[in-house]
Simulated assay, not measured.
Amino acid sequence: MAFKRLNILVVDDNAAMRGLVRTVLTAFGCEMIFEASTAQHCVEVLRAKAIDIIVLDWKMKPVDGISLVKLLRNPNKSPNPYVPIIMLTAYAELSKVREARDAGVTEFMAKPFSADALYRRIQSIVNRPRPFVRTKVFFGPDRRRLAKPDYEGPERRDDEVQSA
């Protein structure tokens, strides 16, 4: 994979964590790494640069990562509502993973993280991009990952319908 062509934005209010993520991304061959320490700065960078992936912390001030994801997924307020977002957080309990997914996060990673785990998340985003879904209450990457061949319900995706 050509990591050097990716524009990645690391958003975390902790400078040391931004530096750690930057170091790992540089080791992958990334050359265009941008940093933001606040939600406002993140939006400013998105307006100025064509960002391919955001790596975002949950616990930030004054605006937390989940609130930022919701803002970024709002087509009326976001410079790029389709940008893939990797949530990198110390919150690892299932309820937090679900909350992040339901806010529109593309991938989820718990701290402490491994370089291999970040590499796999980026590869997944690039090699198997998830389609976006718009409903009355959600806009973001398709939250369904498991294909259930026996599901026959009305909300079945067209690409899962099996021909007889």
Rank of each mutant, 00 (worst) to 15 (best):
N14I: 09
L20W: 00
V21F: 00
T23D: 12
T23V: 07
V24C: 03
L25C: 01
L25K: 00
A27F: 12
G29T: 04
M32L: 06
M32A: 04
M32T: 04
T38K: 08
T38W: 10
T38G: 11
A39F: 13
C42W: 08
C42Y: 10
V43G: 06
V45G: 15
L46H: 12
A48P: 04
K49S: 06
I51M: 11
D57W: 12
W58D: 03
K59V: 12
K59D: 14
M60S: 07
K61F: 08
K61C: 06
V63E: 05
I66Q: 11
K70N: 02
L72M: 10
R73N: 14
R73W: 12
K77N: 14
Y82N: 11
V83W: 09
P84G: 01
P84V: 01
P84W: 02
T89S: 09
E93G: 12
L94W: 14
K96Q: 10
V97C: 08
R98I: 15
A100K: 06
A100L: 13
R101G: 05
D102T: 13
A103S: 11
A103E: 05
G104Y: 02
V105R: 03
T106R: 01
T106Y: 03
M109K: 05
K111E: 05
K111Y: 09
K111N: 05
